[in-house]
């Protein structure tokens, strides 16, 4: 049976467009609002990444740090993250959700315990920022046994040799980091160069779904649309911050932005 992530990519391919993948932080700015945001943007996004916040991130830029900070200040706990997923999945059972975060939270929760909660709430995939290949082999295997996709990352610094191994061990999705940057950096590499690198990875195994993330905004998204999927994260976090500052409703604001993003890649 195909996973929901694989099905989402299949649908997009049929429509000859990349999958739109969003990233928001669970609990930003409240538990309720982050659920409402997921519900609203899921109409336009194909896959939803949901961050479980950590207070000492080593790869996040300012915007995502800000979102995590707001969420943690509001007292978000791992159990709330799973509740948000569970509630979302009740109304949107087929929309894939990927949790993204740092390994210490899983380590403290216990790997098996964490995966049990993932399964129970309906999580489809995991991205663990600080658990690279091959250190992630055991955990990735555990995920696979539970039919949860462990999503590997590839970066511009990844060697060809290493790339091959990562692609071989990958599940339903691989994430290509567009440039040397924390999340939300300004795109400092030309889209042409990014697509070139993307194609190099893609050629290793054309059947694998490869998405691009980091530095993607309304301005840059259309230039990268030959990819299987595109992730927009920091830009969304920034809009939440901005609308809170302007006392606007982040939910409606975000729904509109994601709608616009989608239109740019159709």
């Amino acid at each position: 049976m195909k996973s929901k992530i694989a099905l989402a990519f299949k649908n997009c391919k049929r429509e000859k467009r990349p999958a739109l993948i969003t990233y928001t932080v669970a609990g930003d700015n409240t538990k309720n609002n982050s659920l409402k945001i997921l519900n609203a943007i899921s109409k336009h996004a194909d896959i939803l990444e949901l961050g479980f916040p950590h207070n000492t991130p080593i790869a996040d830029g300012g915007q995502i740090q800000g979102s995590s900070h707001r969420a943690l200040k509001n007292g978000i706990k791992l159990k709330d993250v799973f509740q948000i997923v569970k509630k979302f999945k009740k109304n949107n059972p087929d929309k894939p959700i990927i949790l993204m975060g740092y390994f210490n939270l899983i380590y403290q929760n216990g790997e098996n315990n964490f995966l049990k909660s993932c399964k129970f709430s309906g999580v489809d995939g995991l991205i663990i920022v600080d658990l690279p290949y091959p250190e992630n082999k055991n955990f990735a295997y555990k995920c696979k046994k539970k039919s949860i996709s462990f999503i590997q990352l590839i970066s511009p610094t990844t060697s060809k040799e290493r790339m091959k191994k990562i692609v071989k061990d990958s599940h339903d999705m691989i994430y290509y980091i567009s440039m040397l940057s924390t999340t939300g950096g300004k795109l400092k590499v030309s889209p042409k160069k990014i697509i070139q690198n993307y194609n190099t990875i893609k050629r290793i195994n054309p059947k694998k779904n490869l998405v691009i993330g980091f530095g993607i905004t309304e301005k840059t998204i259309s230039s990268l649309k030959s990819a299987n999927g595109l992730v927009v994260g920091s830009m969304l976090c920034k809009i939440i911050a901005k609308s809170l500052k302007m006392r606007q409703n982040p939910v409606t604001k975000l729904a509109k932005v994601v709608y616009n993003l989608k239109n740019k890649i159709l």
Partner: peptide
């Protein structure tokens, strides 16, 4: 071989980008 002392301390829990450097 995983750069862990006593099998449980240390290691390299780093983002993919830092693997090569």
């Amino acid at each position: 071989k995983n750069f862990m002392y006593g099998g449980k301390f240390g290691g390299n829990f780093i983002p993919e980008t830092l693997k090569k450097p």
